[in-house]
Simulated assay, not measured.
Amino acid sequence: MSDPAEPAAAAVRTQERDGVLVITIDRPEARNAINGAVARGVADALDRLDDSGGLRVGVLTGAGGVFSSGMDLKGFLAGDVPVIAGRGLGGLTERPPRKPLIAAVEGYAVAGGFELVLACDLVVAGEGARLGVPEVKRGLVAGAGAAVHLPQRIPPAIALEMLLTGDPITAGRAAELGLVNRVVPDGTALDGALELAAAVAANGPLAVAVTKQIALAAPDWSHAERWTRQGGLMGPVFSSEDAQEGARAFAEKRPPVWKGR
């Protein structure tokens, strides 16, 4: 059973790799079910990602060949709530990080585990992975993002089929629907995510962060305001030292050296 006093460090491991912060849910004995300790550990790791000038991209994964089986129901019944106020399930679903976050999925990413995946910006999945929202099979509602976001991410009829039947889909089907960026051989999702993260991390950090902000916010902007809003966000990037460095490095045919300012 989940222990409400379980320290976050025991449930979530982190490792820095060349500007990438790998965040691993480390409860393989519970199929990486999300409890309070996981939520606190993920939230702490995401704060570290956003606050560190040396970190450019985050990768979220699970230990033991499983991404996450969702909310720890035993812990929930014992009063261990895996939600951080203002941040949502797992410390992520309501307030993702400012910097890019990539999910590396092996095995099952279901229920709340799938909702963590939906909160990530990019997804790399092993070909044997299964993704889905079985909440209705347990008399629950996928309230940590799937019921809200899934009909906007994929055709509504397909989203409703997933939500109302609770049946999972394969990684290949998820890729066809646009939920997964890359499908890789089982056991290599983390390697694939790190490869993708390296490609993102090589770019200007200010430009990457603002590009993500614009891309995610733009659907809520009216036609009349979108250019003004985008311009306000872009201005500081175009006047930054990094913008000058990017142009200079291109002219000098060398890799840029970003300063994040």
Rank of each mutant, 00 (worst) to 15 (best):
G172S: 12
V180N: 09
Q152R: 14
W258D: 00
A129K: 06
R130T: 05
I154N: 05
P7Q: 06
D121F: 06
L177C: 10
A249S: 15
V42R: 06
L60A: 02
V66K: 08
G204A: 13
Q230H: 10
G178C: 11
P155D: 14
R254A: 09
T24A: 14
N35E: 06
E106A: 13
T170H: 10
A175G: 07
L194G: 12
D3C: 13
Q213G: 02
R56L: 07
S52Y: 03
A189C: 08
A218K: 11
E241A: 15
R98C: 02
C120N: 07
P96R: 13
A103R: 00
P28A: 02
K137Q: 15
E127I: 07
M71P: 06
L194T: 10
G41Y: 01
H223K: 13
A125G: 11
G65F: 02
G88W: 05
G54W: 08
E6C: 08
V42E: 04
M162D: 06
L46R: 08
P205F: 05
G75I: 04
G112W: 07
R261P: 00
P219D: 08
R48H: 13
A215T: 13
L89G: 00
A218H: 01
A119F: 09
L55H: 00
A119T: 06
G172C: 11
L160W: 11
R248G: 01
R248T: 15
S239F: 12
P255K: 03
W258T: 02
A85V: 03
F250K: 15
R87L: 07
D18R: 13
E29L: 11
I23R: 06
A63P: 00
T24K: 07
L196K: 05
L177M: 03
A174S: 12
G54K: 07
V57N: 05
V12R: 04
Q213T: 12
M162R: 03
G143I: 01
A125L: 03
L160A: 14
G260D: 04
P219E: 04
L206M: 15
P97L: 03
K74V: 09
V123R: 08
G62A: 07
M162G: 11
